[in-house]
Amino acid sequence: MARESVKARDRKRRNLVAKYAAKRASLKKQGDYMALDKLPKNASPVRLRNRCSMTGRARGYIRKFGVSRLVFRKWALEGKLPGIRKASW
């Protein structure tokens, strides 16, 4: 499980990206890279990292469900994900 400070930093970055998205798009369209450089570095979507919504784990992230592989497995075994079941052959 990720530390709370890491999760908080990720939330802060996501808020900044959302706040500056329109401004960044317009500056890029105009080609004004000097003004684009003056925006906060954390406003760039490249700096985001996919993290599990439950634990904050960065690795083993399943994009379709928004959680890590560990949480996904737990939910699947508990039957909390409709249509998902353990394979057997």
Rank of each mutant, 00 (worst) to 15 (best):
Y61V: 04
S5W: 06
L39A: 03
S68G: 15
R49N: 12
R9M: 09
L48I: 09
S53G: 15
K38A: 15
I84H: 06
K74C: 07
G60T: 10
G60P: 04
R14P: 02
K29I: 01
S53R: 12
R49L: 04
L36Q: 00
R73M: 09
W89E: 13
R9K: 15
I84Q: 08
R3Y: 04
K7H: 10
R51K: 15
A25Q: 08
V67K: 00
R3A: 14
R59S: 13
R51V: 06
I84E: 05
I84G: 05
G83Y: 05
V46C: 13
S68P: 01
A8D: 09
R73H: 07
K74G: 02
G79M: 13
V17C: 05
N42W: 00
A22F: 07
Y61A: 07
L16R: 00
S68V: 02
F72M: 09
G60L: 12
P40E: 08
K12G: 02
K64Y: 12
N50P: 04
D10V: 01
P40V: 03
G31K: 02
L70Q: 07
S26P: 10
M34A: 15
K29E: 10
A21K: 12
R13I: 08
T55D: 15
C52G: 01
L77Q: 11
A43Y: 00
D37N: 12
R49P: 00
R59L: 15
L70F: 10
Y20W: 12
Y61P: 01
M54G: 03
M1P: 00
R85T: 05
L27W: 01
K7F: 06
M34H: 11
P40C: 05
E78G: 07
D10F: 02
Y20T: 01
S53N: 15
R47Y: 14
A21W: 05
K28M: 14
A21N: 09
L77V: 09
D10Y: 03
R73Y: 07
R11N: 07
N42L: 07
K74F: 12
V71G: 06
M34Q: 14
A18T: 08
K38Y: 01
G83D: 08
V67I: 12
